[in-house]
C-alpha cells in the first residue's frame, strides 16, 4: 500500500460528483459543494463519510464537487478515489456489493 498525496475520481458533469481525497490530520473532513446542498447536503456528507469508514480510511480531507449525483454514483466515485489514494486496484467486490444490502 503506497499512499499518494491526493487522488481524484469523477467529473463535474451534470449528475456526477468529483471526489478529491487529500491527507488530513484530524479524521474525515468533507467539504461539499453541491447544487442540491440545501436538500441533500447532510445526506451526501454522511454517505461519503460512511463509505470511507467502511474502507478503513480515517484521516482524510474530502473535496466533493457535486452536480446532482445519485447515491450510487457518489458511492462509486468515493470508492474509486479511496482505492486510487491507496494505490490499490484490487477491488473487494463482494464486500462493496454487500453494502447495498
Amino acid at each position: 500500500m503506497t499512499n499518494k498525496q491526493s487522488a481524484t475520481a469523477g467529473t463535474t458533469e451534470s449528475s456526477d460528483i468529483m471526489i478529491t481525497l487529500k491527507p488530513n490530520q484530524q479524521g474525515i473532513q468533507v467539504e461539499l459543494e453541491s447544487n442540491v446542498k440545501k436538500q441533500f447536503g447532510e445526506h451526501i456528507t454522511a454517505l461519503i463519510t460512511d463509505i470511507l469508514q467502511r474502507l478503513a480510511i480515517t484521516n482524510v480531507k474530502v473535496e466533493a464537487v457535486d452536480k446532482g449525483a445519485l447515491d450510487c454514483t457518489i458511492k462509486a466515485r468515493t470508492i474509486a478515489a479511496a482505492y486510487r489514494l491507496r494505490g490499490e486496484s484490487d477491488y473487494e467486490w463482494e464486500a462493496i456489493n454487500s453494502w447495498n444490502d
Partner: peptide
C-alpha cells in the same frame, strides 16, 4: 426511490 427524500429548506 431514485433521489432520496429531500430535507426541508430553512
Amino acid at each position: 426511490a431514485i433521489t432520496g427524500v429531500p430535507a426541508k429548506i430553512h
